[in-house]
Computed example of a mutant assay.
Amino acid sequence: MDLSVARKRMVAQLVKRGITDQRVIDAMQQIPRHLFVEEAMAAQAYSDTPLPIGEKQTISQPYTVALMTQMLQLTGKERVLELGTGSGYQAAVLATLAGWVYTVERIRPLALKARKVLDGLRLLNVNLRIGDGTDGWPEEAPFDAILVTAGAPSVPDCLIDQLAPGGRMVIPVGDKVDQQLVLVKKGHDGSIEREDSEGCRFVRLIGRHGWSEH
């Protein structure tokens, strides 16, 4: 199977489904998604579906990655915090669109695998650490954008605190099964505006400011 053709098809589907930000479209075309899944699943990498990546985690479907990224409205110079590195694919997309990416993963084997792929792609503007992502990365705050790639019971206050004035955060909020994408905008005066977007299904955001592991 010609994976470059599959990638073009994937991007064409994203455009059909309403992805309009040309920078996001270009990034999705550029990043080789098949490198972020198991080799046996490479042929499925460009289908618009989530795939297992081990450790009971998944790589989000391409449309969800594109939509959440588009909601951040990145222009190229931002410092972005991502919670839930997983395979590293979302971080790779962000790295092509922003100045710096800070990404946190609580599961060590996933973090190490993601780091290896990101380094292989020479995405050197990604800082990755292992830990409780629900705490954010306070010593590197504030961030112009925050992206949470797991479902939270609510929007953690500590993440709002780490968002820069004028910044945007996208986070799935809901119960353990179904969530809704929420866009949080912080005004330059510190005011907070919240907009609900599409329904979605993510693995649970585990940690001090999310769900408990059990």
Score class of each variant (00 low, 15 high):
residue 171 I to P: 01
residue 15 V to I: 14
residue 200 C to A: 13
residue 202 F to A: 04
residue 26 D to M: 07
residue 139 E to Y: 11
residue 78 E to V: 08
residue 54 G to H: 06
residue 152 A to T: 07
residue 168 R to T: 14
residue 58 T to D: 02
residue 189 D to C: 07
residue 50 P to V: 06
residue 130 I to H: 00
residue 197 S to I: 13
residue 2 D to Y: 07
residue 142 P to M: 06
residue 60 S to W: 09
residue 119 D to R: 15
residue 196 D to G: 06
residue 38 E to V: 11
residue 192 I to S: 11
residue 64 T to D: 05
residue 209 H to T: 02
residue 51 L to V: 04
residue 128 L to S: 10
residue 18 G to N: 12
residue 160 I to A: 08
residue 47 S to R: 15
residue 75 T to L: 06
residue 12 A to Y: 11
residue 92 A to E: 03
residue 131 G to V: 05
residue 197 S to R: 15
residue 108 R to S: 11
residue 34 H to A: 08
residue 83 L to D: 08
residue 44 Q to M: 10
residue 41 M to G: 00
residue 202 F to G: 02
residue 69 T to F: 09
residue 210 G to E: 01
residue 206 I to F: 04
residue 169 M to A: 12
residue 107 I to V: 14
residue 107 I to H: 08
residue 201 R to P: 06
residue 94 L to S: 01
residue 103 T to F: 04
residue 173 V to Y: 08
residue 154 S to T: 12
residue 126 V to R: 00
residue 52 P to A: 03
residue 71 M to E: 11
residue 102 Y to I: 01
residue 182 V to C: 05
residue 6 A to L: 13
residue 188 H to V: 14
residue 64 T to I: 13
residue 210 G to M: 02
residue 182 V to H: 03
residue 207 G to R: 01
residue 171 I to H: 10
residue 168 R to I: 14
residue 140 E to F: 14
residue 149 T to H: 05
residue 86 G to Y: 02
residue 142 P to Q: 07
residue 129 R to S: 09
residue 16 K to R: 14
residue 41 M to W: 11
residue 110 L to I: 06
residue 50 P to Y: 07
residue 130 I to A: 03
residue 41 M to T: 02
residue 201 R to I: 04
residue 4 S to T: 15
residue 12 A to F: 12
residue 194 R to N: 10
residue 52 P to Q: 08
residue 2 D to S: 14
residue 117 V to L: 03
residue 67 L to I: 08
residue 31 I to C: 01
residue 5 V to Q: 12
residue 15 V to T: 09
residue 175 D to I: 02
residue 160 I to H: 05
residue 48 D to S: 12
residue 206 I to D: 03
residue 27 A to F: 06
residue 19 I to V: 15
residue 204 R to L: 13
residue 79 R to Q: 11
residue 194 R to I: 15
residue 23 R to V: 07
residue 124 L to R: 15
residue 19 I to K: 05
residue 186 K to A: 13
residue 94 L to M: 00
residue 149 T to D: 03
residue 111 A to M: 04
residue 134 T to A: 00
residue 114 A to H: 03
residue 2 D to V: 11
residue 176 K to F: 09
residue 57 Q to T: 11
residue 5 V to A: 13
residue 191 S to V: 07
residue 63 Y to R: 01
residue 146 I to D: 04
residue 197 S to T: 10
residue 67 L to H: 05
residue 139 E to M: 12
residue 86 G to M: 05
residue 27 A to R: 06
residue 155 V to R: 04
residue 154 S to D: 12
residue 98 A to V: 02
residue 193 E to S: 15
residue 159 L to M: 05
residue 105 E to L: 01
residue 214 H to F: 13
residue 139 E to F: 12
residue 33 R to S: 09
